[in-house]
Design a protein around this nucleic acid. Structure first.
Length: 152
DNA sequence: GCCAACGTTGGC
DNA sequence: GCCAACGTTGGC
């Protein structure tokens, strides 16, 4: 069992959108970065814990808890010419981009980015390292416990 | 809108 | 394989 932080722009898919989705589950479409893809393809397992992070918005921060709900399979948006995530170099025979399904666990009162930067226990979090842009990053068990342990 | 930081592309 | 140019991310 591993833990992850996954960024989503709330305009695209917020924690409320996830909760409202059919089965409270969404396919994590649109990842077009190899490192993030490899995490989903090679390392993630159903049941892994996910910190659902809102990015590129007025209040960036952790907005909820989710979990990995499938093993990896090809991201269908790479094959859709009308999708912003279309990749002409991908084909059904050799898909480039893989994703997992993510399920809602619960919403939390937002933990702002600025609050994450305060405790020394979280100072090594990948999300907080300067220059980090990865949309999916591993979270250690200690970081997970520290964050989820403080929730009401 | 700005800008730092990073990833990808493509010519050589 | 190098590296400059370009595009993107994402907080502020």
């Amino acid at each position: 069992m591993r833990y992850w932080l996954m960024k989503s722009e709330p305009d695209e898919a917020s924690i409320d959108d996830l909760a409202a989705a059919p089965g409270a589950t969404l396919p994590w479409t649109g990842v077009r970065n190899y490192q993030a893809r490899n995490f989903m393809r090679d390392v993630m397992q159903p049941g892994d814990g996910v910190l659902f992070y809102h990015s590129s918005c007025p209040q960036p921060g952790i907005a909820g808890i989710a979990q990995v709900a499938s093993s990896a399979y090809p991201d269908p948006t790479q094959f859709a010419p009308d999708s912003p995530y279309y990749d002409p170099k991908a084909s059904a025979e050799s898909p480039r981009w893989m994703l997992v399904d993510v399920s809602f666990v619960r919403k939390i009162s937002l933990i702002p980015l600025a609050a994450l930067r305060v405790p020394p226990e979280l100072s090594e979090m990948r999300i907080l390292v300067k220059g980090n842009r990865l949309s999916i990053t591993p979270v250690t068990a200690a970081e997970w416990r520290f964050i989820t342990g403080k929730l009401a």
